[in-house]
Design a protein around this nucleic acid. Structure first.
Length: 466
RNA sequence: GGCGGCAUCGCCAAGUGGCUAAGGCAGAGGCCUGCAAAGCCUCCAUCCUCGGUUCGACUCCGAGUGCCGCCUCCA
């Protein structure tokens, strides 16, 4: 079966066919950089990382664009509260964001365009919409008139007639100045609370609405019509719905071919919330001493359309699973002597891995295939069947699949024992040769207390970090 | 109130209208080991509840329960 994705618009799995053979234009909604991102945010970016990596693995040249929202209500409020400029705040959190991406092994997109660097593009787009009669002005702000776009609501399957009532009760009709409660703002006229945050443009003094940035920037970098657009399910309405309306009305062209949305992350089965005390930024977890790769494992290993339950027990499980892979690598790298190759095993594993991911990124199935491979190869090594060649093939396969998962690499820092530890390991080896097992065990226990585990192998002792 | 999603072993998590319901972690027993660790072997669920469709459902439909999301700017 060919590569397919579940498309939110059609509510169906569709075989993936790029607009231009061999190439993929991918736009993913990025963070509003007004605070540290939380692990729920990273669940989305992790899914997009997997998507992008896998498309690359399947031979596509991926052009991945992720926006940074650096002008928006919450940001302006933060600036006001902190007495800091927009630039200071956004620079701080943009830097933190990129650090966090690195911590989690999320690969960089090709570009991270910021909204404030694309005011001109947004203004041009709003002008185009105005020229075509899709907008109206109220008190200096410019709104998009939804009634001019008949496709509105198709993505979210919303019934527009019912939305009109403002059923959530959040629409304050007294303050409402636009013609229809569903209409959204393209350009916000300046108000005093905005402080230093404004642009003098042909549309007047003010700032862009939120939705317009993604339309303007995605089309600038990927063209009017591109392949894949991603985000969290909460973006479906109204953000992506609005993007479709703006973009289609501005260009008259189809906007996006595949809409992919990931489900949310919950913690211990509950919605993350500060008042419940289960709200975590990545930094919170790292401060607890959790291996970032274990976090990566947890965020990645649930299918993206499935709610991901972040539980600390699952983190422990992920840590052990990682250790199993790392021990396996270690073992493979130490194999000596001739023996059978593992071509068939490797091919089998890769085929199962690809088959799973081809099916709308079934990562769980793919990981299952890898563990079956690990067990089979361990057995072949136990039985003395496989040799150096096979071990090298297995390592190559892990490296290859690591390009997709980012989970199968070698342990990073702190895994190499310092000389002082090595000396004690050697001391223990001597004690063992002398049959002084009391001393031997004492050394082993003391090393364990410091976080170093000894494994005796036929070729000598091996130390590893817990 | 409207719309949508999810509910599988202690934990995480795949999956199929009908062979023995993946995999990881944890757990039990065994092999290996001076003892361990690692590895290997064996064991460990009938799929939220209640109805219905069907020769047959965990997989389809309905109701219920629970959790999650959206309903004007939250991944």
């Amino acid at each position: 079966m060919a590569l397919c994705f579940y498309d939110t618009l059609s509510r169906n799995k569709k075989a993936f066919e790029p607009i231009e053979s061999g190439k993929v234009g991918l736009y993913t909604c990025g963070p509003t950089i007004y605070n540290y991102a939380h692990i729920g945010n990273f669940r989305a970016y992790m899914f997009e990382d997997l998507l992008s990596r896998y498309l690359g693995f399947r031979g596509y040249a991926v052009k991945h664009i992720m926006n940074l929202t650096d002008v928006e209500d919450k940001l302006i409020r933060t600036c006001r509260e902190n007495g800091e400029s927009l630039q200071v705040v956004t620079e701080r959190y943009a830097n933190a964001f990129f650090e966090d991406l690195d911590t989690l092994g999320i690969r960089r997109a090709e570009a991270y365009p910021a909204a404030t660097d694309h005011i001109d593009e947004m203004v041009d787009m709003i002008k185009a919409l105005r020229d075509k009669g899709h907008t109206y002005e109220a008190e200096g702000s410019i709104y998009f008139r939804l009634s001019t776009f008949e496709g509105y609501g198709k993505l979210s399957h919303m019934d527009m007639e019912e939305l009109r009532d403002g059923a959530s009760g959040r629409v304050d009709n007294d303050e409402y100045e636009s013609g229809d409660a569903r209409d959204f703002v393209l350009w916000k006229a300046y108000v005093e609370e905005d402080g230093e945050v404004y642009w003098e443009t042909e549309l007047g003094k003010g700032r862009p609405g939120w939705h317009i940035e993604c339309s303007a920037m995605s089309m600038k970098y990927l063209g009017d019509h591109f392949d894949i657009h991603c985000g969290g399910v909460d973006n479906i309405f109204p953000h992506h719905e609005n993007e479709i309306a703006q973009s289609c009305c501005a260009t008259g062209a189809k906007f996006v071919n595949y809409w992919l949305h990931c489900a949310h992350l919950v913690v211990d089965g509950k919605k993350m919330s500060k008042s419940v005390g289960n709200f975590y930024t990545l930094r919170d977890l790292i401060d607890k001493g959790i291996d970032p790769m274990a976090i990566r494992w947890v965020l990645l290993s649930t299918h993206y359309r499935q709610p991901n339950n972040f539980a600390f027990e699952a983190v422990d499980g992920a840590k052990q699973a990682l250790q199993r892979i790392r021990d396996f690598r270690q073992r493979l790298s130490e194999v000596q002597g001739a023996g059978d190759g593992l071509e068939e095993r490797c091919a089998q594993c890769e085929a199962a891995f690809v088959k799973a991911l081809d099916d709308d990124l079934n990562i769980s199935g793919a990981l299952g295939a890898v563990f079956e491979f690990v067990r089979a190869v361990n057995k072949a090594l136990d039985d003395g069947v496989a040799g150096v060649d096979g071990a090298q093939q297995a390592l190559s396969l892990l490296d290859k699949l690591d390009e997709v998962t980012g989970l199968f690499g070698e342990a990073s820092d702190g895994a190499v024992a310092p000389d002082e530890i090595i000396a004690r390991v050697n001391q223990r080896q001597q004690a063992r040769r002398d049959k002084d097992f009391a001393l031997s065990d004492e050394i082993r226990d003391s090393l364990a207390a410091e976080g170093w585990i000894i494994e005796d192998t036929p070729d000598g002792a091996r130390v590893k970090r817990i």
